[in-house]
Write a protein that binds this DNA or RNA. Sequence first.
DNA 1: CCGGGCGTCAACCGTTCGATTGATTTTCGG
DNA 2: CCGAAAATCAATCGAACGGTTGACGCCCGG
Lengths: 213, 213
Amino acid sequence: MSGLIRVLLVDDHPVVRRGLRALVDELPDVEAAGEAADGAEALRLLEDGVRPDVVLMDLQMGDGMHGVEATRRITALPRPPAVLILTTYSTDADILAAVEAGATGYLLKDAPPEELAAAVHAAARGETVLAPPVAARLLGRVRSGGRPALSPRETEILGLLAEGLANRQISRRLFISEATVKTHLVHVYGKLGVDSRTAAVAAGLAAGLIRPV
Amino acid sequence: MSGLIRVLLVDDHPVVRRGLRALVDELPDVEAAGEAADGAEALRLLEDGVRPDVVLMDLQMGDGMHGVEATRRITALPRPPAVLILTTYSTDADILAAVEAGATGYLLKDAPPEELAAAVHAAARGETVLAPPVAARLLGRVRSGGRPALSPRETEILGLLAEGLANRQISRRLFISEATVKTHLVHVYGKLGVDSRTAAVAAGLAAGLIRPV
DNA sequence: CCGGGCGTCAACCGTTCGATTGATTTTCGG
DNA sequence: CCGAAAATCAATCGAACGGTTGACGCCCGG
C-alpha cells in the first residue's frame, strides 16, 4: 500500500475535475486513476476494473446519481476504495447520510490544497478525515444530544413544508390525517425552536436538515 | 488586442482556481494574469496595476465580497476588463443583477472546457456570451412580460418571508404597517401563482428570486 | 417488563393568514 | 401632462394554522 496512491475523481463540473487533477498530479506519490462526471459513471469505471485507492467525490451532482447513493454502492463493492466526499457547503443535509453510507472523510471545496493532499494520504491509509468545519458541525449535532435530530417522519414532513404544501396536502400526500401532520409539525417546531411553518423551513434549510434544490 | 489574452481568475475555491488555471494555460493565446479568492482581493489586484483583458469570476463567494458587487465595482474602473461570470446554478437569483452590474457574459461551471475557451475569446473581443441555459432563462423572463419580476419591495419582503418572519415582524423590520405587508404579499402570491407564504418561499427559491444562503 | 420515542388520531380555541375592496401618494415614462 | 406602476394604509371575513391536551399501539433498550 506504500506505492502510488490511485485516485478516481468524480465531479460533474469539468473545471473542478481539472483542478483536482492538477492538484493530484502535483503530488509525487499520487496519480489520477480516472475521471467521472457522476456517480453512475464512477460505478461503471469501478466495475470495469478501474481500481483506485481513493475516490474523491462531489456530493452535489446535477443530473446524475447523487453522491450519497453512489457512496453507498461503492462501499458495497468487494474490496471497496476509500470514499472522500468533497463538497461545497459544510451545512449540507447529507453529511450524516454520507458518513452512514460509508464515506471515509469529508472535505470542503474551499479547503487549501495541502489539506486536500493530507486527506488523500490519510484516506489511503484507511483513516477517517473530516474538515474542521464539518467535524465541528457533526460534533455539535452529537453534543447537543442530537437535539435538532428530527425523526425520519418529521424530516419528511419538513421537506414537504419546504415545497410549500398546506397541511391538508401533506396529509393526502402521506396518507395520514391532518391532525397527525399538525402533531408532527408541533414536534418539528419544538425541536427547531420556531413557531411557524415558514420559520421551520428557514431553520431546516439553515441547519442543513433539508436541501434547497 | 490580438496578442495574449490576460485572464484574472476569481473564485473562493482553490480547487476551482486550479482547474481554471489549468484550462486557461492550455489555450495558446490565453494566459492567467493572476488569481483572487474573492471580490475584494480582485479589486486590490486591479488597483495595484494588474491589467487583465477578462475577469473570470464566481458569483457565490462564501465570506468575501459578493460577485455582483465586485462586478459593479470592476466595471466602474477606468478602462475596465470584461467580466465573465462563472456560476454553479442557472437558477441563480443574481443573473439579472450581474448583467445589470455590467457583466459581459454568464457561464455555468458544468460547461465543457471548449465552451469556456470560446467564451473567454468572445469576451476579450467585447462580445456578450451567455450559456444557453442562462440565455434561455433570461429570454423566458423577458418573453413572459417579466411576469415573475417582483418589484424591489416585493422581493425584499419575500426574502424576509424566507427567513421565517411573520407579517408583524416584517412590518416592524421595514417600518411599515402590517396591512402593507399583506398587500405586498397578495401581489407576490399573484405573480408567483401561489396562495401561501410557504409556497411563495418555495417558488421564489425555485425561480431564483431569492437565494438560500 | 416497563419507560420512552415514534407515529397515528381527535377536539378545542385563539391567532394569524389570505382575499377583497378601496383609497392616497409618489414616481416614472410616454 | 396624464396614466401606470409602486408603495403605503384600513377594514372586514372566512379559512388555515399553532398550541394544548389526551389517547392508542408499536417497538426498542435498559
